[in-house]
């Protein structure tokens, strides 16, 4: 733990994918968790929005004494307010989620902040392995559980991936008692967003396999082709060697053997 570090974790209001109910956002909570592990209770958790938002309490329930809220109305551009605040306070590390679970979910906030602050941005991090002499060793999450090591000098912005350590459970009692400190802040209306037309997501049509056959024979083949599925291959009486070979060939074909 590095208590002298000044870490700010930015949190937003999440949304449950099934019920659509407000909750703590998964990635933001991971950012808070990472902050807590790096600098303990000293981590500063920042939200731009409404201090009365109930779901903020579930971040506080992770063991925060206080949570700072830049007061913004619903239609304001949060990244501007956050950018102002951060350039004023100049922390060492800014942690965010990759993408918000509500609103536009563009995932632009960390990029805009990094651009505004002029700091490097490390995307999709899984962990911060160590911080020494003003340089951080970071593990970046790659698809399929792979990791890449990156070194970067402080200060920097990092977006925390789902691969990071799962956030600790939010406890009700501390969440109730934590102090939500509202800071009146200048707000800029998000005019582009105001022109958006938002509706519940439609089901996207699955792309059909179009058959563009040039010849009658191809058309005939396409029309009578056996449909996929309908049971796989079963090897029953072959010797184990052959059976193992078949499995092995499949593994090779799928390219999972490294």
């Amino acid at each position: 733990m590095q208590p002298e570090l000044n870490i700010v974790a930015l949190v937003s209001v999440g949304q449950h994918p099934k019920s659509g109910r407000a909750r703590r956002a998964e990635q933001d909570a991971r950012a808070v968790e990472l902050g807590l592990r790096l600098s303990g209770e000293k981590v500063q958790v920042l939200h731009a929005g409404d201090v009365a938002e109930e779901s903020l309490r579930s971040y506080a329930g992770m063991g925060l004494k206080q949570l700072r809220v830049l007061q913004q109305s619903a239609g304001a551009d949060a990244s501007l307010a956050l950018g102002d605040y951060l350039s004023e306070h100049q922390p060492d590390i800014v942690l965010t989620g990759v993408r918000a679970e509500s609103g536009e979910s563009s995932g632009m906030t960390p990029y805009l902040l990094a651009e505004k602050l002029g700091w490097p941005l490390v995307t999709r991090i899984a962990d911060i392995a160590k911080i020494e002499n003003g340089e951080a060793e970071i593990l970046q999450a790659l698809p399929r559980g792979q990791r890449r090591a990156i070194k970067v000098r402080l200060p920097f912005v990092a977006s925390v991936d789902n691969a990071a350590e799962a956030p600790r459970q939010s406890a009700y009692g501390p969440g109730r008692r934590a102090q939500l400190e509202p800071l009146p802040w200048v707000e800029a209306a998000d005019e582009v967003r105001a022109s958006f037309d938002e509706a519940p997501a439609r089901k996207r049509p699955k792309r059909l396999k179009m058959v563009k056959a040039k010849t009658a024979a191809e058309r005939f083949k396409a029309a009578t082709a056996k449909s996929q599925g309908g049971g796989g291959r079963i090897m029953k009486d072959e010797p184990p060697r052959e059976q193992a070979q078949a499995i092995f060939d499949l593994l090779l074909e799928e390219g999972v053997l490294r």
């Binding site: 329930g61 063991g63 600790r168 459970q169 406890a171 009700y172 009692g173 501390p174």
Partner: peptide, 15 residues
């Protein structure tokens, strides 16, 4: 659970 946030296993997820 309410003060420590320490429900083991899948407790936290279920809650």
């Amino acid at each position: 659970t309410l003060e420590k946030g320490n429900t083991p296993g899948k407790g936290a997820e279920v809650l």
